[in-house]
Design a protein around this nucleic acid. Structure first.
Lengths: 258, 258
DNA sequence: GACTAATTAGTAAAATTTACTAAATATAGG
DNA sequence: CCTATATTTAGTAAATTTTACTAATTAGTC
């Protein structure tokens, strides 16, 4: 959706291609220099930030819609995506707060009564975890800004998106103990210290410097590479990669990390 | 919805009071004589069984809709209800399989083109666990039958409801290790053997006869009563009840059972 | 009153987790 | 070139938890 014309057509006739009354919202987590980041967007007719989201095409599944959405904003494909909760409180969206003048400016309509977008909308929340450094933030006609924020200092969010972030974070942390999702936030090759620091950041707590890496190795998902990383005036740590096959199996079967 | 007239009005004008394109479905689990049961209904115009479900009123939250639905079918209020997943595959409902003649009979319409019910519908899945013996199954005008089935021998289900049951069961079993939901399936007072048998049934595996009850006690949620239960020619086991306050806290904070 | 079968307390062995020590090592700086 | 330093990482002992097993208790029944 890049032109004004396309945007107007989406607003007026989108219900022909998209399912009304339902949307998806994505909490995209990224990790960078020992901080957990969240990607937020600002719609061009709104003053506060929101989670990126959108409607579901009539031909696609929920996860395909979320995937398309994430790809649109990050340029990334195939990243780890997981449904965490669906939100449907009757007053999660306050339509009376919307700007009537902007609406007229875009659509030429004096009222949004009967418009498919202006109705009670249930939203399916997904969270994604990704390697921050590989993302290339992108916008389209409906989005004014797109940026990463530290999870610890998020701005006020539109709708019930603060609640969504809380739930997404909670689910992600729970999953961290049961699925090897942390590996999605690291580059192909990484050291034990790097994955240790990642888990400390994601879980928001200290993990033993010696024992935690041993536990990770004991899970059997890591391949020790012969390569090492040079980190200056210190012993060079080994590089590791993860075993794709065992990773996929662990995603399906689950695992236990303490 | 008890009269034919109300049913017809719901079909024709329900979108005024209910949100279109979204529904909820409930997997209601009950426990009885060491088997796990699932409540199923059969719609009067369908040959196979389904999970009970329905649309969401414009004034209610998702969990309120699920709660209303469960109450309608079981007569029970305030039972443990938990969202587990939302389903939205584009072909989860095959409208072309519906019976055109029955449709005409009820509505007087020769086509369902444009009817609010006959559109792509996303469904939010909830599961509930309840004390089987307290339920009183109920139907309304749209439902032909309502019955309990052994989880091990379910009939073929409509739509994607088999998938839903699988997911509900999976989530319920995961929650069993993290929240004290099992207590919802027992009467007010119960013996350690009874709760032991319950967990074996729910998890589908053997649990040590001596150690497992000790673990449950160690969680600190149980109150040992002075009363005992008479079980015939054997030592009378103590009765236990659960501590409401600690139970509520454990639901919120989570716990770890192995 | 002995027998039976279930409850439940107790305990030893096994396994796991945690806490701590120290060896290995890469580079900087003298 | 040698030592100091910071980090990785192997090793191990202590603490804790889990598991496996034994046996005491007890309410009927025969």
């Amino acid at each position: 959706m890049q032109t004004e014309e396309e945007f107007k057509d989406f607003i007026l006739n989108g219900h022909l291609h998209y399912i009304p009354n339902v949307s998806i919202d994505c909490a995209i987590f990224g990790y960078h220099e020992q901080t957990l980041k969240l990607m937020l967007i600002r719609h061009r007719n709104m003053s506060s930030w929101s989670l990126p989201g959108g409607h579901i095409k009539r031909s696609e599944t929920l996860v395909e819609a979320a995937s398309r959405n994430v790809r649109m904003h990050t340029g990334l494909d195939n990243l780890f995506l997981q449904q965490f909760k669906t939100f449907g409180d009757p007053n999660r969206i306050q339509f009376n707060k919307f700007d009537k003048e902007k609406w007229f400016e875009i659509t030429g309509l004096t009222s949004w009564e009967g418009n498919w977008l202006m109705d009670h909308t249930i939203s399916v929340g997904f969270y994604a975890v990704t390697d921050f450094s590989e993302t290339v933030l992108q916008t389209d006609i409906s989005i004014a800004e797109c940026a990463w924020f530290d999870i610890g200092s998020l701005p006020p969010l539109e709708f019930d998106h603060s609640e969504m972030v809380k739930e997404a974070l909670h689910t992600m942390r729970l999953h961290l103990y049961h699925y090897p999702i942390g590996l999605n936030m690291l580059p192909e090759k990484f050291t034990l210290s790097e994955i240790h620091a990642l888990y400390e950041t994601l879980l928001g707590k200290k993990l033993d410097v010696s024992n935690f890496p041993k536990k990770l190795i004991a899970l059997g998902l890591l391949n020790k590479l012969t390569e090492k990383r040079s980190i200056g005036a210190h012993r060079s740590p080994h590089l590791y990669s993860f075993d794709r096959e065992k990773y996929t199996l662990a995603l399906k079967e689950g695992l236990v990390l303490s």
